[in-house]
Structures are given as C-alpha cells and as structure tokens.
C-alpha cells in the first residue's frame, strides 16, 4: 500500500510534523501564556508618566474649569461667573460629581487618602479648594462647588418676588447652625467611624442620581425651601462651608472697604449671603460672589466714588462757542 501511494505517504509524514502544534491548540490545559501577560505590562505600569497620560482625559477639563473660575474672579466679570457656574453644575456636578464633601473631612481626620498617582484629579480639586480658601476665603463655595453653583443659578432664574428676606438678627443666629452641624458630624464620626451619615447631612449625593426615597424627599424639601430663602443650605446648613469659613479666618486677601462704608448700606443690602455687617465683611459668610466688589468699582453707584467725584462733577466746563455761530 505504501509503495503504491507515495503522495499519501508524504502527506501523512508531513502531517506528523504539524501534529504537535495541532494537539496543543485543541483542548490543551492552558490557552494563556506568559507572553500574553507580558504584552500587557505597560498597562500595569506604575510610572508617573504613563499614569498621568491615562488620567489626562480627566485632568484637562478640570484645569480648564479652574482657569475659567479664576479668570471670572480676577476680572470681576458677571458673564464669566455665570459661565463658571453652569460649567460647575454640568461638568463638576452631573458628569463627575466632583465636590468637596463631609466624606473628605472624615478621610482627612482618618488619615487615609487615595493613592496620589492614581487619583490626580481628586488631589487637584483638594489643592485648589484648600489653597483658594487660605488666599481668598470661601472662594470654593462661590465658584467651584456644584451645589453652590446650582443655588446661585436658581437665584438668578427665579423671580425676585418669591424671595423671603430673613431679618438680620435671625440670619446671624441661623448662620451659626452650620457650625453645630459640623461639630456634631465630626464628633459622630470620631465616635462611631461611620461615614455614611453624610447621606442625611448633605445634598451633594444628588449629582450621582443615586439615593433612597427618604433622601430624595429630604432633598426636594431643601430645594423648595431654597426657592424662597436664597442660598439656604450654603448659609445655614453646609458643614463643608462651615469648615472653609473657619479656615477663612487665616485668609490673606480681604475685600477692602472705604471709610464711607461705615454708614453706607448699599452693598449690605445687595449681598445675598448676609456677609456684610456695616463696615465689616464676615469672612465666614462671604463666598466671594463679587456682587459687592462690582458695586465697589462702579463709579456711578458706589457712594464713596460719587462723593469723591462730586467736586469734579459740580464744576462743569462751559463749552466754547464756535466763531461761525452768530451771537444775537
């Protein structure tokens, strides 16, 4: 048989050469090889360059946002401020739920932090929040916090006649409430080590769109209240704001005042945060919304400027008569 079928024999012989490979492919113990894993080593790389490259998609919009916030602040520009607030609600809030929360305060107390090289956007947010507070006070509350941005936008959109003004003395007492809440929450955490209390104390979880029915009902009540009493949560209930307010005592750049501010009440009435009390601006309440600063620089409205330029405005120069005009 073999003598008569040389082709068949050659074919059989050549099959033998390939047999070891064929058997390894079907039903072999391992389909995985070290080469497969080694090829993926770049993904498991822990070099700073590779990790930064992987997080660039998160870092770039965040840096853009901070740039916008700072530019709007330094330029004292209202349009840019509202652009920042919208960016804050949409990107920092709904898309990323990137806010400073009580949970972070707990983590700092605990001393446990996420790994820096894997969580760069988080560290960037924390750095900006802390540094800006030591420089300008509650700047975070006024520009960066997505919830603060939400209440400020609601402010702008809702009709003014719905607004209920809290009298000054109640306002001051109510403002102290957030310190009580902060102390209570921190005390509770130190005793029980349970961070989950944050769900009932702050509304920032709303941006993750995940919560129990009880949480959503509490949130609805808060938002309804905010329609009538503007910036209700930020002024009276926010524990993060309370903490940043306390840190603001050490802040460097304060809003300067004129001597006329002792008696003028223009800015005090314009401030929606109850931060101005006569000549003094309270650093724990002021969120650097720039309403008073814009008034301040407005030479047509600020009493100080009106008085200062009064002398110039009284002596008006008489326009010269052109020679061609007949005097009769």
């Amino acid at each position: 048989m073999l003598r008569r079928c040389p082709v068949a024999v050659t074919a059989l012989a050549s099959f033998g050469l390939f047999a070891p490979y064929a058997s390894a492919q079907d039903g072999a113990p391992q389909a995985l090889s070290l080469d497969d894993l080694d090829a993926l080593e770049s993904q498991d790389s822990t070099s700073l360059l590779d990790l930064t490259a992987a997080q660039v998609v998160e870092l770039i919009p965040l840096l853009l946002f901070f740039t916008l916030a700072f530019v709007s602040f330094f330029k004292k520009n209202t349009y840019l401020k509202y652009a920042t607030l919208v960016y804050a609600v949409v990107y920092m809030g709904l898309m990323k739920a990137n806010l400073v929360s009580l949970v972070h305060v707990f983590r700092i107390l605990d001393g446990s932090f996420p790994i820096l090289k894997y969580s760069m956007p988080w560290y960037l947010l924390m750095a900006v929040a802390i540094i800006s507070t030591f420089l300008w006070g509650r700047f975070y509350c006024g520009r960066i916090c997505a919830f603060g941005a939400l209440t400020q936008l609601m402010d702008r959109v809702l009709p003014k006649r719905l607004r209920v003004e809290i009298p000054a003395r109640y306002d001051r007492k109510a403002a102290a409430l957030k310190y009580v809440i902060l102390t209570g929450a921190v005390g509770y955490f130190l005793l029980t080590n349970d961070p989950y209390i944050y769900k009932y104390i702050e509304p920032f979880w709303m941006f993750t769109l995940s919560g129990s029915t009880v949480m959503w009902i509490m949130l609805a009540a808060l938002l309804l209240l905010t329609v009538f009493v503007r910036n209700f949560y930020c002024r009276y209930l926010c524990s993060v704001g309370a903490l940043l307010g306390l840190m603001s005592f050490a802040s460097v750049f304060r809003i300067k005042r004129w001597s006329l501010c002792n008696s003028c009440k223009l800015c005090e009435r314009a401030c929606e945060w109850g931060a101005i009390k006569g000549p003094k601006i309270s650093v724990t309440e002021c969120v650097r919304c720039d309403d008073c600063e814009i008034l301040y620089n407005d030479k047509e409205r600020c009493a100080h400027w009106l008085l200062a330029t009064r002398a110039e405005r009284r002596i008006k120069p008489i326009p010269a008569v052109p020679p061609s005009t007949p005097i009769c």
Partner: peptide
C-alpha cells in the same frame, strides 16, 4: 460603571486586574 465614584470604581478594577494577573503569572 456609574459616574460619580471614579476613584472607588477604578481602585476596584485595578485590584481585580493586578491580583488576577499576578496569580496567573
């Protein structure tokens, strides 16, 4: 994965990936 808990989710995925590959290696 949902958004809003990036560090938690990324940390979980990383530990699964690294531990399984370490055992396989």
């Amino acid at each position: 994965a949902v958004t809003g808990a990036t560090i938690t989710v990324d940390g979980t995925l990383r530990v699964i990936r690294k531990s399984t590959r370490a055992i396989a290696r």
